[in-house]
């Protein structure tokens, strides 16, 4: 989903607020605990949680503090899973209770394939309307495999209540100067890329 959350490489942001300043938000630990109990009791999994945050209306996403996004995802999924209703929540507050926008379809993993350490691979040039874990800045880009993970559930399916097959991810090394030619500091950028997002590069 090409929504606001996909921030890597976006321009126009100012200085990083470093180091952290102390602040007093007593509701934040509560929001975190409510999300934790929801995951623990299997109301939703971590992929559904992440996608619910991504589905927040763009202006809401950009303006909400971190733990408001956590709370919004927990409330949205509680409503979508039939635990409660928007009306029941709004009856308890003075004002509206904005939730994330409705979920669309997910997708299954691609047929299995294998890649090796040192192999040059390409990230597929594809556009997914549901949840996925490929930052937009590597779409269609070429890099080198530097690590292979154990199998993880495929998030594009797992976030959409579909049977998620397990597949490895590959830590792929990209050059910043190839991701953003003439427009980046020089660095190696590494991304953990699910197997289904990658394709072979024809050898010369």
């Amino acid at each position: 989903m090409d929504s606001m959350h996909d921030l890597g490489g976006k321009q126009g942001f100012g200085t990083i607020a470093y180091p952290a300043q102390p602040h007093d938000e007593t509701w934040e630990p509560l929001a975190r605990a409510l999300s934790a109990i929801s995951v623990k009791t299997h109301i939703y999994n971590m992929d559904e949680y992440r996608h619910a945050i991504e589905r927040m209306a763009p202006i809401h996403y950009m303006s909400a503090p971190y733990y408001e996004r956590v709370l919004t995802a927990a409330a949205t999924l509680a409503v979508e899973k039939g635990i409660t209703t928007k009306e029941e929540l709004e009856a308890l507050v003075e004002g509206s209770f904005p939730l994330a926008l409705p979920i669309g379809p997910g997708r299954m993993a691609a047929p299995p394939q294998t890649f090796e350490i040192g192999e040059t691979v390409r990230v597929k040039y594809e556009f997914v309307s549901g949840h996925h874990r490929m930052p937009g800045y590597i779409r269609g880009k070429t890099g080198v495999v530097v690590g292979i993970s154990p199998p993880y559930p495929f998030p594009d399916a797992s976030a959409h209540q579909m049977q998620a097959t397990m597949e490895p991810t590959y830590d792929v090394r990209f050059r910043s100067t190839e991701l953003w030619p003439d427009s980046s500091d020089e660095a190696f950028n590494h991304v953990g890329v699910f197997q289904s997002y990658l394709e072979k590069v024809p050898q010369p």
């Binding site: 007593t26 509701w27 630990p29 509560l30 929001a31 605990a33 409510l34 109990i37 929801s38 009791t41 109301i43 503090p65 408001e68 709370l71 927990a74 409330a75 509680a78 635990i83 409660t84 029941e88 929540l89 709004e90 308890l92 507050v93 003075e94 004002g95 509206s96 209770f97 904005p98």
Partner: peptide
């Protein structure tokens, strides 16, 4: 549309609901 309720209230509302449905045990938070 009504403006959003304060975030403290929204968080408390979800706590009340999850407690009421037997999902959030006493003392968990």
């Amino acid at each position: 549309p009504k403006p959003p309720a304060p975030i403290e209230q929204r968080t408390a509302a979800l706590e009340i609901v999850l407690k009421g449905k037997g999902i959030l045990p006493d003392g968990f938070v």
